[in-house]
Design a binder for these strands. Structure first.
Lengths: 102, 102
DNA sequence: TCAATATATGAACATATATTCATGAAATAA
DNA sequence: TTATTTCATGAATATATGTTCATATATTGA
């Protein structure tokens, strides 16, 4: 809090930041995050809600999972995903507000 | 402020949001924004600072310009670019902080 | 007009990735 | 074990885009 911007950004941080933005740069993944922000959903539930193939959702969930933007728990053969990071969603909301008013 | 998340996100907003995130998903463009946040820079100044070709910077500035993330003014044959949106940079800082602590 | 400087742009190439289809893997129940 | 359900994964294809090179455009000054 209250920190000033460093003169330069180290390569590792730069890469991480770019990856997070990239993860949120595809409508499919934004939609998935939007669904998950309402609460836990299984892969099939997400696919049904969004009218997408199970495979498509699973592939994209992997991207979000690798960046720890979503977490999951297993219950039998079903896997429930949920948002792992409130902070990231606040960032999304900010951007959504920005997009709506521009 | 204080608004709740809408049930769904309209396609136009969704597209805009994805475009903004996409613009910030490339290290080159993040670096450019990082330089511009320190103040006005010409295209050549940015290229020299970052050790990139003028053409590369110009191409990427066009992307940022189209999304109104940067603004510019002409002075003779020189064009000075600067960040157009403090809001977006705050979002970047949030993400940078997030990336640093994860 | 002509030269010099700064920036923009078009084409080409290489690379990245989203989606689909087919199939594999894991857990459960009979 | 076998069948069923749910999810993950690999291959293939199409598409998008970042960078480079060459060149065009715009402004200024002589």
């Amino acid at each position: 809090m209250g920190e000033h911007q460093p003169e330069s950004i180290d390569d590792e941080t730069l890469y991480k930041v770019s990856q997070i933005f990239k993860a949120l740069s595809e409508p499919t993944r934004i939609k998935i995050m939007y669904v998950l922000n309402k609460g836990e959903h299984s892969v099939n539930q997400i696919a049904e809600t969004l009218g997408m193939l199970q495979s498509t959702v699973s592939h994209q969930l992997r991207v979000l999972k690798n960046l720890r933007l979503v977490k999951f728990r297993r219950e039998g053969t079903t896997i429930y995903y949920s948002a792992d990071d409130e902070h990231v969603f606040k960032m999304m909301e900010q951007t959504i507000e920005h997009a709506r008013h521009n």
